[in-house]
Design a protein around this nucleic acid. Structure first.
Length: 584
RNA sequence: GGUGGCGUAGUUCAGUUGGUUAGAAUAUCGGCCUGUCACGCCGAGGGUCGCGAGUUCGAGUCUCGUCGUCACCGCCA
């Protein structure tokens, strides 16, 4: 038997017991006549002590061990003469009687300890060592708990967990697919699913009524801190439901997770239309932990001879409370920040609402104190506040104001990671115009149902058609999204037409689905949560990498196994593939 | 595809205007040490300053390129 107990469980009540422990050597403190070993496993750390009573054989072995050796120790649990209040096992120690080296260890490239040692590059290359760190283990344990809790909640609601295939067809809509060549079918390719979308709809047609799956999805697009090429979704679909039923059910799941995992009662799930989110927050995933809403000034700020504003489609700004005291340097920094290519604003106008009630702005030449007072009223600003105003093309300016709002919210410490503010963004546009391809794209996906009252607009003003689509947003993070589906093959055919598919193309790509609709399709709707993002939100992390055991880097590479990698000529031949060197 | 940050000892970092032998902490190794828990004390070893070119009498430092990495923009139905 390798162990009778783990390294985290022995307490003062166990004093006198003879025990065997196995684990990794965290640290050795050799005091000469006596030494201490911190023995670590995922449950905790237990101190081992050797002193003058320890056998010669054990002392000799002890002198050979180092950091990260895997050892087995047996001995008697003793009360410590000097206790450590900082760890749960701090009142006891094991007086060593026997010691076996189970596995030697080379010196690790970074020290295994809680506060990060070794940069991301090393941590990823030696991820199996990084995963020994308690902080990283805790993230993965949190992930496991959340998956378990999700399953038991959905199981209790009569959802059926069903697996769907991973080798499917490539489709032209949406993100780039990962492609898998078929050996048995030369010249043909599978694709990895971006989501199990059509399969879950087929399961509804099959009568499963409630489906879920915690499932890997794949998108061949550039990575971000919150985007990996393979990621996990809590994927769901329900029959005989309307939008309201989905929102209720998944508010329920979200509340349950917050309560079970974090002990937090989250009650409010406000709903705001997409258009309002854009107007007030400059984003379709607003962070509602703080207000600082965007206000439009287009009507009242034009016509004073300030060319920048007079020529703008849109003028708007935000009010940073209590920031009227910002220095020239601070204001310049903000202006430079919005001028970076990532934001792309031309400039930033400020108005200081001084505590004495006067105004000082960068456009005093064009606007009187009375003019600026009107602005301030529009923002509900009070003396001591700072107005930050931008202008230009409306969608770009709103987006830039949204970014500035987030930056100011962060700067003023209004974005607290222990506070959770969910909301539903609803009424998304069904279609958006894509300049590059010169056609409409489905904003959600091609199976999303338009709002019935907007269907007449499909022909006259397609961009005005709203969808029965919804996103769950928490703290400015898009946690999930879904829609009510089209279940009528005629409407579905019309949608494909709007998206620029010919009848033949639609038939070739999605014929099986439209065909299935002919055999009695129930009204259905669904949603998918980004599981990695949800876990990182619960863990208070900005990057999803730390909640994934073996993540990929910025360039989509796994630096530990060095993938992707080349394959042999034989493999290529068998698949009928040839590598063509790209010219620069 | 683009913008920006970072790259110096195993690790974390310092390194002045371009100037002698590139430092500190920590880790490692050796010695001493009976109550440590970030043990302590003494000593030692450890460097392709990411790589390559250029400027210069002289480059860790300046310029260009390149590689790696991170964040972001585009992209992500």
């Amino acid at each position: 038997m390798y162990r009778t107990h783990t390294c985290g469980e022995l307490r003062i009540e166990d004093v006198g017991q003879e025990v065997t422990l196995s684990g990794w050597v965290q640290r050795i403190r050799d005091l000469g006549g006596m030494s201490f070993i911190d023995l670590r496993d995922r449950y905790g750390i237990t101190q081992i002590v050797a002193n003058e009573g320890t056998s010669e054989k054990v002392v000799t072995t002890l002198s050979k061990i180092g950091r990260e050796f895997v050892i087995q120790v047996n001995g008697v649990v003793k009360e410590r003469s000097s206790k450590n209040k900082n760890i749960p096992t701090g009142e006891i120690e094991i007086e060593i009687k026997g010691l076996t080296i189970l596995s030697k260890a080379s010196l690790p490239p970074f020290t295994i300890k809680d506060d990060t040692d070794g940069g991301d590059e090393l941590r990823m290359k030696y991820r199996y060592l990084d995963l020994r760190r308690k902080v990283v283990q805790e993230n993965l344990i949190l992930r496991a708990k959340m998956a378990h809790t999700t399953r038991s909640y959905l199981n209790s609601q009569e959802f059926i967990e069903t697996e769907t295939p991973v080798l499917i067809n490539s489709t032209p809509e949406g993100a780039r697919d990962f492609i898998v060549p078929s050996r048995i079918n030369p010249g043909k390719f599978y694709a990895l699913p971006q989501s199990p979308q059509v399969f879950k709809q087929l399961l509804m047609i099959a009568g499963f009524d409630r489906y879920y799956q915690i499932v890997k999805c794949f998108r061949d697009e550039d990575l971000r801190a919150d985007r990996q090429p393979e990621f996990t979704q809590i994927d769901c679909e329900m029959s005989f439901v309307e939008q309201e039923d989905i929102l209720d059910t998944f508010e329920g799941l979200t509340k349950h997770l917050f309560k079970e995992i974090k002990g937090i009662e989250v009650t409010e799930f406000p709903r705001i239309p997409y258009s309002e989110a854009i107007e007030k927050y400059g984003s379709d995933k607003p962070d509602t932990r703080f207000d600082m809403l965007i206000h439009e000034l287009t009507g009242i700020a034009k016509g004073n001879g300030f060319v920048v504003f007079d020529s703008a489609d849109y003028i708007g700004g935000i009010c940073a409370q209590g920031c009227a005291g910002y220095s020239r340097k601070q204001l310049d920094q903000l202006a430079n920040w919005v001028k970076r290519p990532q934001i792309g604003a031309k400039g930033l106008i400020y108005v200081k609402y001084n505590t004495d009630g006067s105004f000082k702005s960068s456009v005093d030449k064009f606007y009187s104190q009375d003019d600026l007072k009107k602005w301030a009223e529009k923002f509900n600003a009070r003396p001591g506040d700072l107005l930050l105003v931008m202008s230009g093309n409306d969608s770009h300016t709103l987006k830039a104001l949204g970014e500035l709002r987030l930056k100011m919210g962060g700067q003023l410490n209004l974005r607290n990671n222990n506070e959770f503010k969910p909301l539903w963004v609803i009424d998304f546009p069904l279609l958006e115009w894509d300049k590059e391809s010169g056609r409409y794209h489905a904003m959600h996906h091609p199976f999303t149902s338009p709002k019935p009252e907007d269907i007449p607009l499909l022909d006259s003003a397609p961009e005005k058609v709203r969808a029965n689509a919804y996103d769950l947003v928490i703290n400015g993070v898009e946690i999930g999204g879904g829609s009510v589906r089209i279940f009528d093959s005629a409407l579905q055919a019309k949608m494909f037409g709007k998206l620029g598919f010919t009848t033949e193309q639609a038939q070739a790509q999605f014929g099986f689905l439209m065909n299935a609709f002919k055999y009695g399709a129930p009204p259905h709707a669904g949603i998918a949560f980004g599981f990695d993002r949800l876990v990182s939100l619960f863990a208070g992390l900005d990057s999803i990498r730390d909640v994934i055991a073996f993540p990929k880097n910025n360039a989509g590479r796994d630096v530990m196994i060095d993938s992707p990698s080349e394959v042999t000529k034989e493999q290529l031949d068998e698949l009928g593939l040839r590598i063509i060197q790209k010219e620069d």
